[in-house]
Amino acid sequence: MNKQIKLIDLGEKDYKETWDYQEQLFQSILDVKVANRRENKNDATENYFVFVEHPHVYTLGKSGDVHNMLLNDQQLKEKGATFYKINRGGDITYHGPGQIVGYPILDLENFFTDIHKYLRLLEETMILVLKDYGIESGRSEGETGVWLDAGTPFARKICAMGVRASRWVTMHGFALNVNSDLGYFDNIIPCGIRGKGVTSLNVELGVERVDEDEVRSKILKYFTELFEVQFIK
């Protein structure tokens, strides 16, 4: 089993271009797995972890409700944002500058074949990162992602998650609000959940800006420990 993960940092990149790139990596792993089964081979599959920051964009998961998007096409243009219906789980979310987005494209047969465990470890990675900044976070029952003050009237999400998996290969991933413009969340019902807020790391810390490179380093540190992997360039 291949426990190495190729780390790819795309910097700032258009959502659709990144989605197409994800699909290429995802399909390349599937192709190896299909060939292994057909030809009775045992070739190793690759794993990838893509960091990216998107321009303003709203994405709606395959099980989402389009009515959770509160802007029409003209209003989207005025906001300088785009909108895509995509093939991950979950409902609607926002991506934009100041948000760290990670797309682990993994063959889970290299690690463990359990999507529930995969999501919980992704959440735990973010919980540990936030703890380093003195922020206590956790899970909200029945709602994927990482929350502050879950189960109280002050519940607010700081990290959204949505994944797709086929033949145990994953794509899409997480979006951690670090220095996000939270006003863009006012244009949607985030994740289809009414009456709960959204926050970001800089707001919780009461600072203008958090070092995003430092946050990315912490994500990789805890992901390495929890998933027992090695990152390579």
Rank of each mutant, 00 (worst) to 15 (best):
K3F: 05
K6H: 14
D9S: 11
G11V: 11
G11Q: 09
G11D: 09
G11W: 07
E12H: 06
K13D: 10
K13F: 08
Y15M: 08
Y15L: 09
T18H: 00
Q22C: 08
E23R: 14
Q24I: 12
Q24V: 12
L25K: 13
Q27Y: 07
D31V: 04
V32A: 05
N36K: 08
R37V: 11
R38C: 02
E39D: 14
N42Y: 11
E46Y: 03
Y48G: 13
F49H: 05
F49N: 02
F49V: 05
V50G: 03
V52T: 09
V52K: 01
E53M: 14
P55M: 11
P55H: 07
Y58C: 03
Y58K: 02
G64R: 03
D65Q: 12
L70E: 06
L71V: 08
L71A: 12
N72I: 05
N72A: 04
Q75F: 00
Q75T: 04
Q75G: 04
K79F: 03
A81E: 13
T82S: 15
F83H: 09
F83D: 09
Y84M: 05
K85I: 14
I86V: 15
G90L: 08
D91K: 01
D91I: 06
D91G: 02
I92N: 01
T93Y: 05
Y94Q: 05
Y94G: 04
Y94W: 11
H95R: 13
P97F: 12
G98D: 13
G98M: 14
G98E: 15
Q99W: 15
I100A: 15
V101D: 14
Y103P: 01
L106R: 00
L108I: 11
D114P: 13
K117C: 03
K117L: 14
L122H: 06
E124M: 09
E124R: 06
I127S: 01
I127E: 12
L130P: 12
I135N: 02
G138R: 00
E141G: 01
V146P: 04
A150H: 04
T152D: 03
I158C: 08
C159M: 13
G162V: 01
V163Q: 09
S166N: 11
S166G: 07
T170N: 00
M171G: 02
M171K: 14
A175E: 11
N177T: 10
V178D: 04
D186A: 09
D186G: 03
D186M: 02
D186F: 00
I189Y: 02
C191Q: 07
C191H: 03
I193D: 03
R194A: 15
G197I: 13
V198I: 15
V198H: 01
T199Q: 08
L201T: 07
V203D: 11
L205P: 00
L205N: 04
G206T: 07
G206K: 03
V207M: 08
V210E: 10
E212Y: 02
E212R: 06
S217V: 01
L220Y: 03
L220T: 12
Y222A: 01
F223P: 00
E228F: 03
V229E: 01
F231V: 05
I232S: 08
